[in-house]
């Protein structure tokens, strides 16, 4: 699959004995939002750096709109790195103009962009402040704007929501949606699966330097064939023992193809095998108590993540770098 959008074609990269990326592939059609998920040290950041040509890949290729990324002029892409960095002594407006000029747009265009994004990111009050005086959230806003001020066609965001409070997170999600609405293709990594689900059309799960799951969100969720049942019951009377151990006794304990995932007082989450009759389960539950909530859905991205990564049981080291003795 090549041509439109971003196409990562089985790339690899190692640093000395450490194989950071072994076989990562993904396609992100132009205008799409793709979430890249995976454990720490899975190779997400290295992959992003390869897209941005900060480091070259050892094998495989990366193309944007059908052309190798190396052939695109500097300033074509936008990048918000995981580790935040700005010039601390500069004023916010000057810093933004500096990055805009570096990315190839004029100071005048930069000021127009600053005007445009100031409302969306609620940052009018900080434009004249020095970067070192900003809170973490505000610093992140400035860095986000510095990364996208030149309206790049492809934007790479590495952990854009880490360390943000709920209000700023909402603001950022709004900004990402806005960026997408303006036509940018967005690739971002995150450990917050609910954000990925809310923002993305597509998802790519990387672990141990390899793409394990990849595709449109809905298809990925349906792919396992399993379903998730969430139940809330009133007046279900467990024995004394199960008050201490909530999973010891639950309303669908003896049903075939029903596997308890999590349990809380009065509520349970089950994984259902494809052949299970959900109507029969509802009747069972009504006999066991008063049903307050009953929903059946495909597994969430978090479920897919947990199931896939747990199966792989990635041997990560303390600093999160995947280590393998032999190459694949």
């Amino acid at each position: 699959m090549s041509g439109m959008g971003l196409n990562i074609n089985h790339v690899s990269r190692s640093f000395g004995a450490v194989k950071a990326v072994q076989d990562v592939w993904l396609t992100a059609p132009a205008g799409s939002v793709t979430g890249v998920i995976g454990p720490n040290g899975a190779g997400k950041t290295t992959t992003m750096r390869m897209i941005l040509r900060i480091i070259p890949c050892e094998s495989g290729s990366i193309t944007w709109l059908g052309k190798p990324v190396a052939d695109w002029p500097l300033g074509t892409f936008g990048y918000l790195p995981e580790e935040r960095g700005l010039y601390p002594k500069m004023r916010v407006r000057d810093e933004l103009i500096f990055f805009a000029r570096l990315h190839g747009i004029s100071a005048k265009e930069a000021l127009e962009q600053i005007d445009y994004w100031t409302d969306i990111l609620d940052m009018s009050a900080i434009l004249n402040m020095k970067v070192e005086e900003l809170s973490k959230g505000n610093g992140q806003k400035v860095q986000f704007l510095a990364a996208v001020i030149h309206r790049p066609a492809l934007v790479i965001l590495d952990e854009p929501f880490s360390g943000l409070d709920p209000v700023n997170t909402r603001l950022f999600m709004q900004a990402v949606k806005q960026l997408s609405a303006l036509g940018s293709t967005i690739l971002f990594s995150s450990h917050q699966m609910d954000y990925v689900e809310e923002l993305c059309d597509r998802v790519c799960l990387i672990a141990q330097g390899r793409t394990l799951v990849h595709g449109p969100i809905d298809e990925v969720r349906k792919a396992s064939g399993k379903q998730i049942l969430t139940v809330r019951l009133k007046e279900f009377a467990p024995s004394e023992r199960s008050v201490v151990d909530l999973s010891a006794e639950h309303p669908l304990q003896h049903e075939m193809g029903v596997k308890l995932q999590t349990a809380a007082p009065g509520s349970w989450r089950y994984e259902l095998a494809p052949e299970v009759d959900t109507n029969a389960l509802l009747q069972k539950l009504q006999q066991a108590g008063h049903v307050q909530h009953f929903s059946v859905d495909y597994p969430s991205i978090e479920d897919v993540y947990l199931a896939t990564v747990a199966t792989k049981n990635a041997p990560t080291t303390a600093n999160g770098v995947v280590k393998e003795a032999n190459s694949a």
Partner: peptide, 16 residues
């Protein structure tokens, strides 16, 4: 200082 503050990484997108 640029390396320490990681601002380098932002700049490498648009400059050699």
């Amino acid at each position: 200082a640029e390396k320490g503050s990681r601002v380098m990484e932002m700049m490498l997108v648009s400059a050699r």
